[in-house]
Amino acid sequence: MPQEGRFFELFNAHAQQVVDGGQALVSLMASLVDSPREAMAHAQAIDLFESKADKITSDTLALIHTSFITPFDRDEIHKLTNGLDDILDTIQDVAESLTLYDIRRVTPEARQLADLCLSCCLRVRTVVGLLDSMNNATGIMKTCAEIHQLESDADRVLRTAMSRLFRDEADVRQVIKLKVAYELLEAVTDRCETVAGIIEAIVLENS
């Protein structure tokens, strides 16, 4: 009979790709202005992590259909897997926008948003790693609450960034580029919060 543990191996592998993508995003942001070649390498690394995540998604969905026993509801597994994949897809969108739009100036707010993205990704990995036992329910809910708080922090940074951008930036092209970058960076934290919500629902239903 198929073992439940295989699902948790896939969840953890998926969450690790999320963290790898978040770390590469921060590195991309740090090197974008002074080391464009290095920045391109980080963008390519994000593409690789996203491809690995797609393979993990495919493996997880295949396992759903071939397993008689699953650790929790199949629809919840599907939502969690797609939610993790959405985080990496959005990180990839950020990287593509930064490189395609030829952004040459990185603002403090953009760096702050990238750091918040990574903080969310790290907590996603933590909370996914706790899912193998509902005895971890308290820790799971605490970590999910931290993700919600980080997403709220990102909202505040986004509002500040947008206000300063439209108030102080004279170059219309730069306004358009940075607006897209800010919104996509904040969207990464939104995707992490969505995963937190999915996991909270799993805990409430199964603990």
Results as ranks from 00 to 15, higher is better:
residue 1 M to Q: 10
residue 2 P to C: 08
residue 3 Q to H: 14
residue 3 Q to M: 14
residue 5 G to Q: 11
residue 6 R to E: 15
residue 7 F to H: 04
residue 8 F to V: 09
residue 9 E to M: 09
residue 10 L to D: 04
residue 13 A to C: 03
residue 15 A to F: 00
residue 20 D to H: 03
residue 21 G to W: 00
residue 23 Q to T: 13
residue 24 A to K: 02
residue 25 L to K: 02
residue 26 V to T: 15
residue 26 V to M: 06
residue 28 L to A: 02
residue 29 M to H: 04
residue 30 A to E: 12
residue 32 L to F: 06
residue 34 D to T: 09
residue 36 P to C: 06
residue 37 R to G: 11
residue 38 E to K: 12
residue 41 A to N: 11
residue 45 A to F: 07
residue 47 D to I: 00
residue 47 D to Y: 04
residue 48 L to C: 08
residue 52 K to P: 02
residue 52 K to S: 11
residue 53 A to P: 02
residue 56 I to D: 02
residue 57 T to C: 06
residue 60 T to Y: 01
residue 61 L to C: 09
residue 61 L to Y: 03
residue 62 A to V: 06
residue 62 A to Y: 04
residue 68 F to R: 14
residue 72 F to K: 12
residue 72 F to C: 09
residue 74 R to Y: 01
residue 78 H to W: 07
residue 80 L to C: 05
residue 80 L to H: 01
residue 81 T to Y: 00
residue 81 T to G: 02
residue 85 D to H: 00
residue 86 D to L: 05
residue 91 I to T: 03
residue 95 A to T: 01
residue 96 E to T: 10
residue 97 S to T: 13
residue 101 Y to E: 08
residue 101 Y to V: 05
residue 101 Y to L: 14
residue 101 Y to H: 13
residue 104 R to W: 06
residue 104 R to T: 12
residue 105 R to G: 08
residue 106 V to K: 06
residue 106 V to F: 05
residue 107 T to N: 10
residue 108 P to Q: 06
residue 113 L to G: 05
residue 114 A to T: 03
residue 118 L to V: 05
residue 121 C to M: 04
residue 122 L to V: 11
residue 124 V to L: 02
residue 124 V to A: 01
residue 124 V to T: 09
residue 124 V to H: 02
residue 130 L to G: 04
residue 131 L to M: 15
residue 131 L to F: 03
residue 131 L to W: 01
residue 133 S to E: 09
residue 134 M to K: 10
residue 135 N to P: 04
residue 136 N to I: 03
residue 138 T to Y: 12
residue 139 G to Y: 02
residue 141 M to H: 09
residue 142 K to N: 11
residue 143 T to W: 00
residue 144 C to V: 12
residue 147 I to Q: 00
residue 151 E to Q: 15
residue 152 S to F: 14
residue 154 A to R: 02
residue 154 A to C: 03
residue 155 D to P: 06
residue 156 R to Y: 12
residue 156 R to K: 14
residue 158 L to F: 08
residue 158 L to G: 04
residue 160 T to W: 05
residue 163 S to E: 13
residue 163 S to I: 07
residue 164 R to A: 09
residue 167 R to H: 12
residue 167 R to C: 07
residue 167 R to A: 14
residue 169 E to M: 08
residue 169 E to P: 09
residue 171 D to P: 11
residue 173 R to N: 13
residue 174 Q to S: 13
residue 175 V to G: 05
residue 175 V to A: 08
residue 177 K to V: 00
residue 179 K to Q: 13
residue 181 A to L: 15
residue 184 L to T: 01
residue 187 A to M: 06
residue 192 C to D: 03
residue 193 E to K: 11
residue 195 V to D: 01
residue 196 A to R: 00
residue 196 A to K: 01
residue 204 L to K: 10
residue 206 N to W: 05
residue 206 N to Y: 07
residue 206 N to S: 10
residue 207 S to K: 10
residue 207 S to N: 10
